[in-house]
């Protein structure tokens, strides 16, 4: 999707649909209609969106307080509202957000204002080198390349080739000991509901890709999962039975997907 079409507020935008499903107000009528359509097909989706979003606070704490990362670089960030990474990191941590949606970037900069150590750039998560090689980002990092990357709830919008390319770029760019927190969206593309949702996203020019865990593991090579491994959203939050049997049919064994800390 081009930047121009991202500015077209007469068409639904995946980021704003996500915001609506999360209960936010940074969305337009067309996004709300789209969100309601998705909810009507799959009532579990708003739950999944929240389960996914709630992970961010854990990620921020784990990466900075427990694992000592001083810099987090987040892709396809959306709006840095309450509950996003910078609100839960250890003091002094640098957080670099990015998103390709120009409205989101402008809005985010307003939200962040002069928040120290937090930056927001326009960049496409499919081409992380464009963000990483920006002179401003290099200046912020001051040569530090032992960093933590975050790709949360976005890989479902990326092709296999794009994920493999991102994995390689991040791996080659970063220093030993770096980390990549990533969420794999999983679903059963043969389920009738899933088919309709996939059709919908294809129609708005933002195709969604479901892929099994085994494929994802291959795509993110040479990154390796840490000792926690790939965790479903329910495992991540210590919950049980958040889904009906039909939900499970639709979103496959992983309960909507897997979160993981990959390490170099």
């Amino acid at each position: 999707m081009s930047e121009k079409s991202l500015l077209d507020t007469t068409k639904p935008n995946p980021g704003r649909i996500y915001d609506y499903l999360l209960g936010g107000h940074h969305n337009f009528e067309v996004d709300r209609r789209a969100g309601d359509f998705i909810k009507s097909l799959a009532p579990f989706v708003p739950k999944m969106v929240r389960l996914t979003r709630w992970c961010l606070q854990d990620i921020a704490r784990t990466l900075t307080y427990e694992r000592g990362y001083r810099c987090i670089i987040d892709f396809a960030s959306g709006l840095p509202t309450m509950g996003h990474l910078h609100t839960a990191v250890a003091p002094g941590t640098v957080v670099i957000y990015s998103d390709r949606d120009p409205i989101c970037v402008e809005y985010s900069r307003e939200i962040l204002g002069d928040t120290p150590n937090v930056y927001y750039f326009q960049a496409d998560c499919r081409r992380p080198e464009e963000l990483l090689n920006r002179p401003e980002v290099e200046a912020i990092l001051g040569g530090n390349r032992r960093v933590a990357f975050v790709y949360w709830a976005i890989t479902g919008f990326m092709t296999d080739e794009e994920i493999a390319n991102v994995a390689r770029v991040l791996y080659d760019w970063s220093d030993e000991g770096s980390c990549w927190a990533v969420f794999l969206m999983e679903g059963n593309p043969e389920h009738p509901t899933a088919k309709r949702i996939l059709d919908f996203y294809r129609q708005i020019g933002e195709p969604v890709y479901y892929r099994p865990l085994a494929v994802f593991r291959e795509l993110v090579q040479p990154w390796q999962p840490d000792e926690l491994g790939f965790r479903t959203l329910e495992e991540w939050h210590g919950l049980q039975d958040t889904m009906t049997e039909d939900d499970k049919q639709f979103i496959a064994a992983g309960g909507g997907g897997y979160g993981v800390y990959l390490v170099k």
């Binding site: 936010g24 739950k47 606070q57």
Partner: peptide, 11 residues
């Protein structure tokens, strides 16, 4: 729980 926004994770 699933009607709340970001800052009220189940745990």
């Amino acid at each position: 729980a699933f009607t709340n926004r970001a800052l009220f994770p189940p745990r």
